[in-house]
């Protein structure tokens, strides 16, 4: 049976769990590329051009890793989640970039809520390409969504409860594909945890709340994921000690939305912009001094 390749980048961090349960239910074999490592990063650099952000670069590395290991690569095209909730252009273009760069068949679906193209329709579409029956696909979709919602709810609960912790609390404003990537966010999270800081993740909060709350910072925004992110500032207001903005270079939405948020909040923050420079020293200096300041140890 045809094997589906799932690159561990960008979309994976939003839809990975749903895809896995969906394919599991249908008994469709799939392969997920490993955590980002140097080899994958180098492959990504090889296939990308100078305008692409670090996250898209690594994504292409993951696709390249999978190229000869599966029959299809799963690349969705995500346009919008309704009015004023668009995505970054990378989410729209990844599909075309992969098709034009690599010599492999792709499995593709659209998410474009303005045109009523939903995740359900998308998954059913790719299921049919893989020769599954409609009724079976609807069941698989329901199963995947149920499992996803359960996991998501418990993650949100866990993350939200950290706000009651007595430790120093830092809100990490970052996209999940950066936060949880081994070569981008992992070292930062490891450092903060080692230094006894409670990290509240902006992507693990109820996005229905945060999306709406972002209007308190600005009503003119239209990037869905950025709105979700900075809405977290409002949701956690008064309960956190500081904010870390983490983004991949060069990120279009972040350079607009995060900058705006930085000018409006009244909290200590640092802005970390990462590219594929392998040395952690510069980042460590910034983290160490930030944690020092929040803890206030040096004044004793």
């Amino acid at each position: 049976m045809d094997k589906v390749g799932i690159p561990r980048g960008i979309f994976y961090y939003y839809y990975g769990d749903i895809w896995k349960s969906f394919f599991d239910y249908l008994k469709i074999p799939y392969i997920i590329s490993p955590s980002t490592n140097k080899e994958i990063m180098l492959l990504g650099t090889k296939y990308s051009n100078d305008e692409m952000c670090l996250a898209l670069k690594t994504y292409l590395g993951h696709v390249s890793y999978l190229e000869d290991k599966c029959d299809y690569i799963l690349v969705p095209r995500i346009d919008n989640f309704g009015l004023d909730n668009q995505t970054c252009t990378n989410f729209l273009s990844a599909y075309d970039i992969v098709q034009n760069t690599f010599n492999i068949k792709t499995l593709n679906y659209n998410i474009d809520l303005e045109k009523h193209e939903t995740l359900k329709r998308g998954l059913i579409k790719i299921g049919k390409i893989l020769n599954k029956k409609h009724s079976e696909l609807v069941k698989a979709y329901k199963y995947a969504m149920k499992k996803y919602k359960e996991k998501r709810e418990s993650e949100i609960m866990l993350n939200f409860n950290k706000l009651n912790s007595s430790k120093v609390k830092i809100l990490l404003i970052s996209h999940p594909y950066n936060t949880y990537d081994d070569l981008i966010g992992k070292d930062i999270i490891k450092y903060l945890e080692k230094n006894d800081v409670e990290i509240i993740f902006s992507d693990k909060l109820d996005e229905n709340l945060t999306n709406k709350l972002s209007e308190r910072i600005s009503k003119d925004l239209y990037f869905k994921y950025s709105k979700d992110n900075i809405g977290a500032l409002e949701l956690t207001k008064g309960k956190i000690n500081g904010v870390i903005f983490l983004s991949a270079f060069p990120c279009g939405p972040d350079s607009l939305v995060n900058e705006l948020a930085m000018r409006k909040i009244n909290l200590p923050y640092i802005n970390l912009v990462l590219d594929d420079n392998s040395s952690f020293t510069g980042t460590e200096t910034r983290l160490e001094s930030f944690v020092d300041m929040l803890k206030g140890d040096i004044h004793e």
Binding site: I270, L272, S289
Partner: peptide, 20 residues
């Protein structure tokens, strides 16, 4: 590196550093 450190009442309250 370049940095700015804000101090109020003898306590560091905010700072910023250049990006890399």
């Amino acid at each position: 590196d370049s940095k700015i450190i804000l101090i109020r009442n003898g306590i560091i309250t905010n700072y910023a550093m250049n990006t890399l």
